[in-house]
Design a protein around this nucleic acid. Structure first.
Lengths: 195, 195
DNA sequence: ACCTGAACACCGTTCAAGT
DNA sequence: ACCTGAACACCGTTCAAGT
């Protein structure tokens, strides 16, 4: 005798996301998710492969959300201003959703990797802005440099790694300004040795 | 009747580190550590407060090891070359010990924070090099920019986030060269708007 | 003083049995 | 077709009992 479904994948992902944000990854248990959507934990396995699969689904929803945030931030016609706005949007998102953000660059096992196409879409607007700044040949390298810096910065900030005092907001702006200057083609200095 | 100790904190930390490196943080269980040092898992609680405490001890040993590696790399008299060498040493360490490295900037609960003095000691040589490059006033900001970039880069590399092709080694050198140029005082561009 | 078996309160996951 | 209780193989941690 068929039975109507009592929950759904989107509902499960939303519940998992909510638990993740409030209690961290360790607090994200199948039993708490099940309780939140109103079933027993074994029933979840009809919709997701398991806990790691659920984490992947949550991570993908976070990627999409961050991508949307950065897209709206990339509107400024001046590439330096656009870079600044994107970087600030990136940081704001990370600080507002630290546990969700931590999923983005986590080392997941190969079989639960985030969909590569999603990641590509998420880096699109930054890649375009970096290209306007550094030129088309260096767009990829420039975008990687900015992303690496921004991710490293907020990760260290969230980890409490800035323990030597100083103004963290000022350090962030210092980083953007110097990166923007460094990525414009005229200031490139290559090779070894001092200038 | 007194009994001679059958293990020690250093032995437990070493075993935990070995298990962490081979099997990741999830594989680091108290039972596996106990088995490796030759006791039953309850005995470990005579030496460490618990699993999170053990993880903190391991993380601190990793900090010390990375600090030593970077100290030896900071010898070059030319600050740009020193920065390059430090950055490469940093990346090599991360790629050689990915699971251990992941502990460094992880968000630990407050009661298991890594000893701040240890972290300060670890960033000393980079701070000095950054000061030689950017000047004493901007040493802290410059060091944070470099650390953030380097950490973000290797984290993304380890996470498999560089999916858009291109030469990752080249991207790393691109980043160092541009950062070194950007941090020297002459190329600073502040304020808003385009140049 | 140190070590341990037993126990407790959890996990994720599977599966036969229910409707 | 979906849901569930029961079960299995794990966890971390505590503690009384052993030596």
């Amino acid at each position: 005798m068929p039975t109507p479904a009592r929950t759904s994948v989107p509902e499960i992902v939303a519940a998992g996301r909510a638990i993740l944000e409030s209690d961290g990854l360790d607090g994200l248990t199948m039993q708490r998710v099940a309780e939140m959507v109103g079933v027993r934990s074994p029933s979840l396995y009809k919709r997701v492969r398991g806990r790691t699969d659920l984490i992947r689904l949550i991570a993908e929803s976070v990627v999409d959300e961050l991508a949307a945030t950065m897209d709206t931030a990339a509107g400024d016609p001046d590439p330096v201003n656009a870079l600044r706005t994107i970087a600030h949007a990136f940081r704001s998102f990370a600080l507002a959703h630290p546990n969700a953000y931590a999923l983005l660059f986590a080392r997941h096992p190969d079989d639960v990797r985030i969909d590569p196409e999603r990641n590509a879409r998420a880096s699109e607007s930054l890649l375009r802005t970096a290209g306007r700044l550094a030129g088309p040949d260096d767009a990829l390298e420039a975008a990687r440099t900015v992303t690496a810096w921004a991710h490293g910065f907020v990760t260290m900030e969230l980890a409490g790694a800035f323990q030597l005092g100083g103004d963290v907001d000022r350090a962030f702006d210092y980083g953007i300004d110097h990166l923007a200057a460094a990525l414009s083609p005229t200031v490139v200095r290559r090779g070894t040795g001092s200038p």
